[in-house]
Amino acid sequence: MNLDFSQIVPYIPFMLEGIWVTLKFVSVCIVVGFILGTLLALCKITKIPLLKWLADAYTSIFRGTPLILQLMIIYFAVPQLTGYDISAFLSAVLAFGLNSAAYVSEIIRAGILAVDKGQTEAAQALGVSYKQMMKDIILPQALKNILPALMNEFITLTKESAIVSVIGYLDLMRRAQIVGADIYRNFEPLLFAGLIYWVMVYILTMLGKVVERRLRVSD
């Protein structure tokens, strides 16, 4: 045991910058995943076979292949195919956002199905349109029930985001590797990065609890 954290001190600003880089793309991914996931969930519960099939096929593909493979296809293979030089940020957002949407759509679908059928009937009997019913009555109740599962997905996304280091995106993880290579010591920077990931997830968990408490006022 010869841990020496003093050696990474000069690199701390460099690594802390990684927090911002990671947060930036993870938050975009969460938004993309949530919106697309909601739309996919709505497709899955419609009576239109084509939409249902498309949404199921989408989920099957993105859940059935490794995330790292999807990321590498988007970053390395797309330019080869189209000639468009895609940035690491955009690749990351696409891969993680599209992948997360597949998982989120299943969570939301389960949430919608768990809302009492009487809610739909009450809304219909009042003459409420399908769109308004979903927006104001079904989805708010569904979200309340699935919030813990949704938080789980967001936490996973935050941690799995470390995979972007394989395409050279300068996130927290990649920076820890660079520092490790620079000072020939890996334990300290990796431990430091681990601590930061843990703190980020902890804060996210707390945020989830606040939202959950807000949604529970009607109980």
């Binding site: 009492d116 009487g118 809610q119 009937e121 009450a122 009997a125 009555i137 708010p140 109740q141 309340k144 949604l215 009607s218």
Partner: peptide
Amino acid sequence: IGMVFQHFHLFPHM
């Protein structure tokens, strides 16, 4: 046409 149900079906979040 108004309707009242056996199990009320009030919107619980309102």
